[in-house]
């Protein structure tokens, strides 16, 4: 389950931030998948500039956490791996955004 939005406005609430989402490469992957229904590996590689190996490793972690769903399908006669956010993944990303926004908005200029 993704962590709940933080309640207090002090920096202590940073500890509630989901570290799985907070990693920059994974955050990027989640952001791209959040604004589409599904996408394939090539799309994410083009958008994120990650290598195949790197992307694969991050996707495996997100899949293990239940945030990303990996599905095999056919486009024409070729097999195609599509990636999409699960409901849990969407909730985790939303919560992360709310938490970060709250924490950063409360900091003085």
């Amino acid at each position: 389950m993704p962590p709940k939005p933080t309640r207090s406005n002090d920096l202590q609430s940073l500890t509630d931030i989901d570290k799985l989402v907070h990693e920059p490469a994974r955050l990027m992957i989640l952001a791209y998948l959040y604004v589409v229904e599904s996408a394939d590996f090539i799309f994410l590689i083009r958008q994120t500039d990650l290598t195949w190996g790197n992307l694969s490793a991050h996707i495996s972690k997100l899949e293990a956490a239940g945030y990303v769903e990996v599905t095999k399908e056919f486009v024409g006669k070729k097999p195609h791996t599509m990636l999409s956010l699960t409901a849990e993944g969407r909730a985790a990303f939303r919560t992360y955004r709310q938490n970060m926004k709250r924490v950063l908005d409360d900091l003085p200029d």
Binding site: V36, S38, A39, I42, R46, V75, M82
Partner: peptide, 9 residues
């Protein structure tokens, strides 16, 4: 093949 496949919400 160059930019991948993406489906809209």
């Amino acid at each position: 093949p160059r930019v991948g496949l993406v489906r809209p919400t």
